[in-house]
Write a protein that binds this DNA or RNA. Structure first.
Lengths: 262, 262
DNA sequence: TGTACATCAGTGAACGCGCGTTCACTGATGTAC
DNA sequence: TGTACATCAGTGAACGCGCGTTCACTGATGTAC
């Protein structure tokens, strides 16, 4: 392996550095396993050290504190979910918006079922006393970015809204209701104003009504997955083979309709 | 105070029984406060005993174990939320389905914001290692009962569905899609089958499509409240005065439309 | 109404366990000359 | 290539804290005669 002096390399060089990266990864992996057994509250550096056969104090060579490990696990979880969703979303033809939307939904649900405690870590109750640092923001928005992209393309396909405006201006300065472009009716002024943070982050223009619908469907997606995963579907939605999948597929179909895809 | 011998009374009689009921209530109340500070994972009988100025062992005269307290807190939370929703839902004119629906939604959100940790306890991540006993089922469905009642009345107002069936039969024995009665399109056979558990609990007939819509809106309601409460709206929905309320009100309006109310 | 006994609330010590984090120290690995 | 020194990984003991739960015991409250 060549190693030009002065070149900044992210790949570990020396045996020490390689070992360090490996053991750090092992600690995180062990933390992930603990998460699955005991949840975030039961995450313990001592238990991880025991599992890895090292003194509890040795872990501190790799991790400054329990909270740092928690942060790493949160980022990992967001990245894992994001990667799964991106991989599935990439499969359908780019013009097949329904296919792409369904791929994202199914990826989210499948990942959540496969990794229930990591899902709970990022979309469940916040860990008391823990505040997520800024590093978690970017990985946290990977799924949302996919959804936004699909929404933007769907909006673009429809062309300008019926009233001739480009639809991207929020409600300030206008009275009453804002034209909707077919996304479930116009949006009240105050509600349109509440959408500003997300709208200003977008490069493309999205009408208020479409954004409102997008957020609602986004909340519905994660709400549905959470309710199922957290046990609220008992005695409500069937638990026989394929029942949960069929219900979810029907949800996905209807959300796509609400988003005006296809 | 009269006390007829032989009469079964749920009200405590003797001073001892009165004291017992009071102290039990104090323990639960202290538990509720701890929930608000440390979350479910940090709930500790010792800490509660300390707060109440008694020996840690004394708590065991009133509570068999930590899990029993947790169960009581869960039931209390469901009951508290249920009572709040019922009280608000009772206010509008019975014929005003939109008003009743909005009242339930606002009550849920307001209660969740006022009692975030109790909300997290019942709608957030499950506590690892804890399994909710059967006593929690009835109080857990109080809000759902209100929603179902509104849905049933809305369906009743529309009369029989367009294809002449009463709409209550689930998909078995029919092929393809089932008539919807205007609720967001027909429901796939498999999805209709998945709805059986909830449909068989209802006294009135509800078409599959309406039930599907009802469940989806229910999940959307709690999903939206959860996402807001658990911090997922950061940089998405505005945090200025009234922003969150306006966004939620717009959601409520659109859900009512999806449910075919008004 | 008064006494004898049973019931119950509350105590304090103990068992056995877990945790996060620090610190002085040993010994191996890497680096500069 | 070999030596001297610096860096780093890992150890084991310790600090100080918390927890759930049990148990033998004291003393107050309630009950039956």
């Amino acid at each position: 392996m060549t190693n030009d002096a002065g070149t900044v390399r992210s790949v570990p060089r020396t045996a020490r550095e390689r070992a360090r990266a490996e053991i750090t990864a092992e600690i995180i992996e062990a933390g992930r396993r603990h998460l699955a057994t005991d949840g975030a509250a039961g995450l313990s550096l001592r238990a991880i050290a025991r599992e890895l056969g090292m003194a509890s104090s040795a872990v501190y060579r790799y991790m400054a504190s329990r909270d740092e490990l928690l942060t790493k696990l949160i980022i990992d979880a967001y990245d894992s979910l994001g990667a799964a969703a991106e991989a599935m979303e990439a499969l359908p033809d780019r013009r097949d918006l329904i296919g792409r939307w369904s791929a994202v939904c199914q990826a989210v649900r499948n990942w959540a079922i496969a990794n229930p405690n990591e899902y709970a870590l990022i979309y469940g109750s916040p860990v008391p006393g823990y505040v997520a640092p800024a590093d978690t923001i970017a990985p946290a928005s990977r799924v949302a970015n996919l959804l936004v992209q699909i929404l933007v393309e769907a909006v673009g396909r429809r062309g300008p809204t019926a009233d001739g405006s480009d639809g991207s201006v929020t409600g300030s300065g206008r009275s009453g209701l804002v034209a909707d472009g077919g996304y479930g009716g116009p949006v009240a002024d105050a509600a349109a104003r509440a959408l500003e943070p997300i709208l200003t982050q977008l490069s493309a223009a999205v009408p208020d009504a479409a954004m409102q619908t997008g957020l609602m469907v986004w909340a519905a997606l994660f709400g549905t997955v959470s309710l199922e995963l957290f046990g609220q579907f008992h005695n409500v939605v069937g638990e026989g083979p394929g029942d949960r999948e069929a219900f979810f597929a029907e949800c996905v179909r209807r959300w796509a309709a609400q988003l005006g895809l296809g």
